[in-house]
Structure formats: C-alpha cells, structure tokens
Amino acid sequence: MKNNQIRLAIAGINGRMGKNILTVLNTENENNILLNCILEKKKKILNNLDKILYKSHLLKINYNIIDVIDKFDVLIDFTNPFSTMENINICKKYNKKIVIGTTGFTKEQKIIITKISKKIAVILSSNFSQGINILFKIIENITKIFCKNKQKNLDIDIIEKHHKNKIDFPSGTALSIGDIILKIFKKNNIVKKINFHSIRAADLYGEHNILFSFIGEQIELTHKVSNRISFAKGAIQAAIWISNKNKGIYSMHDVLGI
C-alpha cells in the first residue's frame, strides 16, 4: 500500500450500490484509493460465496465491522437505517470517517448523526450523482425567484420513480428537494405545501420530476439516471474528499463545491 492511499471499506457489498461501487473501483484507475475490506450481513451472502474479486485478487467478505476496524480509513455505507446507525456509532468510537448513502432515517436518527459528526467526519447525502446536486442548486434559485415575485396560486409537485424493491417513499432525494423549497419559502414568511408522488415499478434506476404550476404556465425540471454508476462514482469521490477532514457533517454540495 502506498503512503498516500486511502483505505476504503464498503458496507453492503452485495447490495445494488455496493456492486456498482466495486465495478467502478475494478474498472477505473483510482490510484489514491484502496478497497481494503468489504462487509455484508451473513444472511445476504450469495451462493455461499465469501470472497469477491477486486483487481487481481479475491477479497474476503466480513460479517462484523469490528473485525476489520484497523484496516480502513473511510467507510461507504449504502445499507439500511438500522445497520448504518450501528456502523456510524462504531466509526465514532474508533475515529473512522463515513460516507452515508442510506435513506429513510427518522428525525431522531438524523439528530444522532449530526451529534456524531462533531466527533468524526460524515458525508450524508440522499443522492450522490453530480446532476441531481446541480439540480438542487437550480431549484434553490427558481424558488428564490418565485418568492421575490410573490407568485400566487403556485402548485408544487414532486414525482419520483424507483425500482419496486425500494422501501422508503417519498425517496430521500424527493424529500431533500422538498426541504430546499420549503426552507426558502419559510425564510420569506410564505406557507406552501408540496405534493409528493411516488412510483415503485420494475427496475427503475431513479427519476425525479419537479413541477411548478401556475395559471396558464408550468415549469418542469427532470433528472433521470440510466444506471447507478453515476451514484457509485459520486460516492467514491466523496470518500476521497472526506479523507482529509477531521470532523463535521457534509453533503455532496461540499464535495462538488457548489
């Protein structure tokens, strides 16, 4: 291992995002990052295979993060709220950095994550694609214009589509979009309601449509992904970015500098 390499761990290696992150690491030349350990729940091990090919060697799947706690610097976690909360508490105890792509947290869990970020560096994002984070900024600017012009009778709808196995709805990204809009309206002393619409079907990767409708006109913003590679690349970029941070809670806005 090179001295400047970031030792990476992935939680949920057999999940959709875990597999895509592994694909990116296997196919792209990321010299400054080394996948050193992979984690999965025992019940999710496929076909009794306990090793996965990484670069030119087999990497053993671990069932307990404590067993490999000295082998990584940054953990990427796309699992579920229960597992992520377990992992972030362990990362806090052993001073490890964590990139969280899990969604569906309760308000109480988000408060705990924020408190933990006072001890370690945390990136928490509902979506790691570059495009969606640029869209967040566009939505922020459009909402400010609506507030400035005191647009009346404005209807706001957010429609999101994901694969049928996605448990949480609305999606974390849809909720993030809603939070951006509502915070700006609240800052301008305007009460506004947002209508959320969720579709769970087949193997849809992810699509978000934001509709601003008023008399005689409609503005529609859309973001689509054709595969999960963009999310995987964003998560790896986030892991590299956070590697030199000591503590604090960050988002992909910070990573991308937007």
Rank of each mutant, 00 (worst) to 15 (best):
F82H: 06
F82E: 08
F82S: 07
S83Y: 02
T84C: 01
M85C: 03
E86I: 02
E86G: 06
E86Q: 13
N87I: 00
I88L: 05
N89Q: 14
N89C: 07
I90Q: 05
C91K: 04
K92E: 12
K93E: 12
Y94A: 08
Y94N: 12
Y94P: 10
Y94V: 11
N95A: 12
K96M: 09
K97L: 11
I98N: 07
I98G: 07
V99W: 13
V99Y: 14
I100R: 07
I100E: 04
I100K: 09
G101A: 13
G101N: 11
T102C: 08
T102K: 04
T103N: 07
T103L: 00
T106L: 01
E108D: 03
Q109A: 01
I111L: 12
I112S: 04
I113G: 00
I113A: 00
I113L: 03
I113E: 01
T114V: 01
T114H: 10
K115L: 10
K115Q: 13
K115V: 01
I116M: 04
I116V: 03
I116G: 00
S117M: 03
S117N: 04
K118R: 15
K119V: 13
K119S: 15
A121E: 10
A121P: 08
V122F: 12
V122M: 06
I123G: 03
L124P: 06
S126R: 08
S126M: 11
F128R: 07
S129L: 06
Q130M: 09
I132V: 13
N133F: 03
N133P: 05
I134Y: 15
L135P: 01
F136L: 07
K137M: 09
K137R: 12
K137I: 08
K137A: 05
K137E: 14
I138L: 13
I138F: 09
E140R: 15
E140T: 13
N141K: 14
N141E: 14
I142L: 12
I145R: 09
I145Q: 14
F146V: 07
